[in-house]
Design a binder for these strands. Structure first.
Lengths: 199, 199
DNA sequence: AAAATTATGAGAGCTACTCTCACTTGGTAG
DNA sequence: CTACCAAGTGAGAGTAGCTCTCATAATTTT
């Protein structure tokens, strides 16, 4: 029984991780160069030097190559682990500082590229929206734990919805302006919301 | 003051409207009965007694049969037309009362069915999320006009994001509970937001 | 080194969606 | 009323995403 996504040990595991990374790298590059829908799975497979059928063993769909984010679970963990005396928004903002400090510059640049791609291509944007919906549950859970309220408390859920909405608006704004620093824009947005709708 | 989409005049137009309605009706019925992905376009076409190629002349994609809402533009128009002295949230709430009063009971029941379907099927949910993103622009425009601010004003966009987020959270909650009255739930949510984050 | 496990590739098949072309039907002008 | 034009339709071919199966090759394990 293999364990959780720590670091791959056997040769097999390492090879798999490498193949997965190669597929994603080439996919993102091709999408950037020729656009998302103009790029076929066969092209990605050819670039990554695997067969098309192998592609689908690594990613369930073409769009998963863009949506897949190995840092996601790490961030959630980091958010949960923030000092318990912080308010929900405080914890959120602290997590964002954490990202900025911890993530190597190269990784962050790639992450930005991914974001631009996702918000530019309509097909991908709708897929991402789903993640924002999940975010409501996630945030409600986080806030409930910190404030001692129930997860399905009306005010908690409403608050979580407002936060996600504000972040979404900030993202959409930042995606349009390539100069904008996403994290700064989001921080400003949640700070402003927190000032009038704290929890 | 038109409460329903423009009425077709010629025989041709009427026939087209009828075909479109038939396709959508059969599609929704089949989705309800067998699930969305288990239903093929060919089945829908057969049920509506048209050829598969004709299907795509009426709807660009399979999911469009669920997403297509002829009342959408009517609602937007209604929202814009609300008394100018109302606050943005006031106008929004007034528009919802308007829906309740104007829409025949049967139509509203069908609309609820559509909503349930859309939030249950993951493929459809992500498609709908895109509409919420559009909603931010829409609301920002509405609010900007009513308050005399710019559409890309930071507070206006942030407010619009919060409203959409809160509505989204309410929708997700209402979709889970078949007893809930969607309009009431949404009204409560925006009222609560308005109390602390007015514009 | 043999055996058990697992990754891979080739290929067949399904479905959403696009495009072209010939045919029919509704609207209209003479 | 007829004759013509425009618009709606269906048949069929083709592309791409995605699934499934089966034989082969690679990696562990014994």
């Amino acid at each position: 029984m293999t364990s959780s996504p720590a670091e791959p040990v056997g040769l097999r595991e390492r090879k798999k991780a490498k193949t997965r990374a190669a597929i994603q790298r080439h996919a993102l590059r091709l999408f950037e160069e020729q656009g998302y829908s103009a790029t076929t799975v066969d092209q990605i497979a050819a670039a990554a030097e695997i067969s098309p059928s192998t592609f689908f063993r690594y990613f369930p769909t073409k769009e998963a190559t863009v949506l897949y984010d190995p840092f996601d679970p790490v961030l959630i963990e980091a958010a949960v682990a923030q000092a318990p005396e912080l308010s929900p928004i405080g914890a959120l903002r602290a997590t964002m500082s954490f990202i900025r400090e911890q993530l190597p510059a190269g990784e962050w640049e790639r992450e930005r590229q991914r974001q631009r791609l996702v918000f530019r291509e309509p097909e991908l944007r709708s897929a991402v929206m789903d993640k924002f919906a999940e975010g409501i549950d996630l945030l409600a859970g986080l806030a409930a734990r910190r404030t001692g309220r129930a997860v399905d408390d009306f005010e908690v859920r409403n608050w979580a919805g407002a936060v996600v909405g504000v972040v979404l608006a900030a993202f959409l704004g930042a995606a349009a302006d390539p100069e904008a620093d996403t994290l700064v824009v989001i921080d400003r947005a949640v700070a402003h919301l927190d000032a009038s709708l704290p929890l």
